[in-house]
Design a protein around this nucleic acid. Sequence first.
DNA 1: ACCTGAACACCGTTCAAGT
DNA 2: ACCTGAACACCGTTCAAGT
Lengths: 188, 188
Amino acid sequence: MARPVLIDRESVLVAAYRIADEEGLAAVTMQRVATDLMVTPMALYRHVANKADLLNGLVELLLDDVPVPVPTMPWRERLRWIAESIRLAAQAHPAVFVLLFQQPATIAALDVRRAIYGALRDGGVPESEVARTERVISTVILGFAASEAGGRFRNRPKREVDSDFAAAQAMVEHYLDQMRGEGATPTP
Amino acid sequence: MARPVLIDRESVLVAAYRIADEEGLAAVTMQRVATDLMVTPMALYRHVANKADLLNGLVELLLDDVPVPVPTMPWRERLRWIAESIRLAAQAHPAVFVLLFQQPATIAALDVRRAIYGALRDGGVPESEVARTERVISTVILGFAASEAGGRFRNRPKREVDSDFAAAQAMVEHYLDQMRGEGATPTP
DNA sequence: ACCTGAACACCGTTCAAGT
DNA sequence: ACCTGAACACCGTTCAAGT
């Protein structure tokens, strides 16, 4: 009988993801991932091209963990939901999250970006300003989440960080109201 | 005669800084730094505690490269100057800049933070709001600069990134005007 | 097709030894 | 005090070989 398949790409990524979450990126080595899967390090190379490919896979896994809101939700709530989801993902997977900053924005988080576009359009942001507005507010939210994930706020009490996040969100919302133009309908 | 001293902490950091700038963080190894200084890798350990200490030293070097504005400058111009300086430092030293996100905000950039505090006070931000306002606007500017340094915008034309930065700055300035309160003096 | 054994060039770091 | 030689346990990655 043929030998059973021991691992596949997904099991490799999941094992690496768990190591990153529990012990940080430095603990994610080919040898360690292999050990956890009870194979030799060389077996991994049939499922990931190399270590860089493995790390890219982790970012994909992270983005799959960011829930996208249903389009029936009011647009403002959708944006708040996305911001909150990104922050929660950063808190749950800080090691992987910082890798997001090394990836082109056009590749990472396609679904999330589309959801933001939809909310901005429904909010009355002119089509010509939708793309830029998304880039600017995404940078603010990602910057905050990455600061938290990377440890920039590690010496600050949680309540303070929470209210800083609320302040950043308020800043974003005010910017948004400007982008919507003066003739836009008030907050739905 | 005594043998001449070959290296010191500063020469080690400067050599590593140059390698990081020219070839990225991955090229910064103890062996490579030692080779450039024409000593053995073990010689470095008399001047830096270990590799983590060396990387921390690079962040200090980076922050020394961020010029702080003179306090005679109008406060709004001081803030713009700082934001611009941070962005330029990120562009000049992208590899080292991303390390800033791994450091507590309280340790890194003490001088820069003090300069921002001063500008905010001169701008009429109430004392009780100075610290939080600094944290929020620093996060926006650092987030933008780190996005650029990390390559999140690498697929976008330079002009677009420049105008995104201007938009982010406008957002920050608007937030600031709110923090200054309604009775504050108009833009000096 | 999938995994292993052996091997390579590199890592960071230590310790005792030299000057 | 400062640097080196030798050594250690680890990296990522390749290639030929096994099943």
